[in-house]
Design a protein around this nucleic acid. Sequence first.
DNA 1: TAATTCTTGACTAAATTACTGGGGAAATGA
DNA 2: TCATTTCCCCAGTAATTTAGTCAAGAATTA
Lengths: 158, 158
Amino acid sequence: MRLTTKGRYAVTAMVDLALNSTGGRIALAEIAARHDISQSYLEQLFAALRRSGLVDGTRGPGGGYQLGRAGAEISVADVIDAVDESVDATRCGGKRNCRGDQGCLTHDLWESLSSQIRQFLSSVSLETVVKQHRAGTAPQVLHKWLKTVVSPLNSGVL
Amino acid sequence: MRLTTKGRYAVTAMVDLALNSTGGRIALAEIAARHDISQSYLEQLFAALRRSGLVDGTRGPGGGYQLGRAGAEISVADVIDAVDESVDATRCGGKRNCRGDQGCLTHDLWESLSSQIRQFLSSVSLETVVKQHRAGTAPQVLHKWLKTVVSPLNSGVL
DNA sequence: TAATTCTTGACTAAATTACTGGGGAAATGA
DNA sequence: TCATTTCCCCAGTAATTTAGTCAAGAATTA
């Protein structure tokens, strides 16, 4: 799970789509203009999103993109995965023998951490983000929530 | 908050330091060999870690690096921030006028999401990672924990 | 048919990552 | 003092990724 500006572009565009989708379709040119992103670059990202079934494109006048399924069914992790191509990143290709015993031990550590992040992002849907935005106060709620949730982690429960 | 392989190198090295630190110092060459990373590259990362006070280097024979403070006091987010130089990433430099009204609205969305990830990573200390690794079963515990915690998010509480 | 919009592919510039190499400076031990 | 070990700092560079351009074409609507 990587978290780059590329993924951010994709998430932004998808949230835009979720935010402005009142049943109709939205042209890429619109999204590109709204966020001042190169349209051709967005096209590349949407090609990947399309291949993953996250969006649905229709051509011709009045055409555009739609969410491939309900916003509640699309997680932020889905979007990031679609454009990021997860480049293996393990350096030893999953084999547990990169260097001595301990080499891949720390691999495991990283992957465990990384999978926690993934699970977290998988739990946040586009709808959640939209709702959170509309609510306004939500970030504080989340902040509180995280605080209560996170303390057992550092207090030696594990 | 970006999450690249660069940050992963740094976290791996720091966890190695936390794992093998029995009071003494550890030479960079050791860490480099253990994880098969270019030593000079690690030197660059450690220069950044040093500037942030996360590690403490001593020269001469028997020298090496030490954690700058207790492993419980160093979060994964600290490590990533130290090497990542957080390149602004807002594209409009904080100003709320990049394009019309809605441009920076979605900015807010992203930044809120990004800050949630940051808070999550801030809650995980090196000690936590080490403990989790030693426990072995911990990842499953975490998985369960996340599941109970995450459901209110998607069930319309917000 | 003409306009619109997605779709695809090739190509390029800029930035970042990962790495190399060299020349020190401080500490230690002989 | 001198050699060795280690951090420390800087300059450069190849590979990769990001971000963007350009052009041709397919499907749809009016």
